[in-house]
Design a protein around this nucleic acid. Structure first.
Lengths: 205, 205
DNA sequence: CCTTTTACATACATACATGAATGTTTGATT
DNA sequence: AATCAAACATTCATGTATGTATGTAAAAGG
């Protein structure tokens, strides 16, 4: 059955995205054919190629879908705890973790980018996009550490950049392992104690 | 040209492993065909299927190749700094990092498992194997934290298990990001400061 | 020296996946 | 009301990966 109106077309598009998100997340990107995505969405392959150029464009669209709410949330959190940089850093970190744990789209996307998609030349644009937003975030958080140093709450011998890279690595690693086996540990508890312990370690005594 | 002697066959096998390791690491597992591996090793596909059942068996063999030296090193490090659990933990962590940075086989394998191989049902045995050795290591390191608590060097309110999970996540995350862009930061520096800061954060003042 | 394996190469059968080309039905436009 | 274009469905042409079956020459074994 062909959907005719613009609203119907948008529905089809969303159903395709949902199907792709689910199948990619369950069975891996390269192990999922366009045919399977189409079938799961109740359409034929023709529908996919009408809405998306190819499989990469599909993943790209999946990223678009979550990037907007993520950006909004980041902008909001940027304005809180302005004079308490370590607290803001903590809140921003834990909020991302909370989002990955509770927003299904976000979780599926991180899962796909982390475990269901090979980082190769073909997928480079995807991962570059993923990293660009991240690097911005790193630069911004480095300034938080520097500010904390100026305020005297963080030790002078701490390298702000390496510190942020480590904290982000900690969170990435938690995602990485938690997505492999969500039962193995509680994500929020680990992230909370992990970030707190780390911040404690760089704080002045 | 057919290699006839047993020694020659072993050479062929090693060349196949080297070729697979390189191609998988460069172009991704599912994006590399058995044909390409064979060509890179200077043989035909028949040679591969003679030595390995399929692509999974190839990856499995790649793991075998590095698991032995890794195990040996772990056993050795287990015996050092017995009465200084935090120091032993630190050394064990940093040694793994050092190994990933300096041993090409180790680095390629971590890269493959981390970025060049989708975690799907087909590859489950691979990843299960990867995780089993890891979980053993976690259990062992948890005991190090508990010992440090008994010795009074680590705060009582620290959860040993979550702590180790976080520290391991930190290292995993560093691998994950460093392999994506080795120029972006110095692995050893980040790991050193990261682990030290974290341990500082859980230590008694 | 004869037989049996080993260690591959070659060939084949099958199965998908992709992309593009084309067809068709209906909403949208004027 | 007529035309256009969107939103798909259908079909085809092609490439490519896999697994297996078979062939073969030399090494290993007795």
């Amino acid at each position: 059955m062909v959907r005719r109106t613009k609203a119907d077309a948008l529905t089809t598009r969303l159903e395709l995205l949902d199907a792709a998100e689910r199948l990619f997340s369950e069975r891996g990107v390269s192990n999922t054919s366009m045919m399977q995505v189409a079938e799961a969405a109740g359409v034929t392959r023709g529908a996919i190629y009408h809405h998306f150029e190819n499989k990469l464009a599909l993943i790209y669209a999946l990223m678009e879908r979550v990037s907007l709410p993520v950006d909004e949330m980041r902008d909001a959190l940027r304005k809180e705890h302005i004079n308490q940089p370590l607290l803001q850093l903590r809140e921003r970190c834990l909020h991302i973790v909370h989002q990955v744990q509770n927003d299904p789209h976000m979780q599926a996307l991180v899962n796909i980018l982390c475990h269901k998609c090979e980082y190769v030349e073909d997928t480079l644009p995807i991962h570059l996009r993923h990293l660009s937003g991240r690097n911005e975030c790193i630069d911004e958080c480095v300034k938080l550490i520097e500010l904390a140093q100026q305020q005297g709450s963080v030790r002078e011998d701490i390298d702000p950049r390496l510190t942020i890279i480590s904290i982000f690595a900690l969170i990435d690693g938690l995602f990485y392992n938690w997505l492999l086996d969500p039962e193995y540990f509680d994500l929020m508890s680990a992230a909370g104690s992990g970030v707190d312990n780390y911040l404690q370690g760089i704080s002045k005594v």
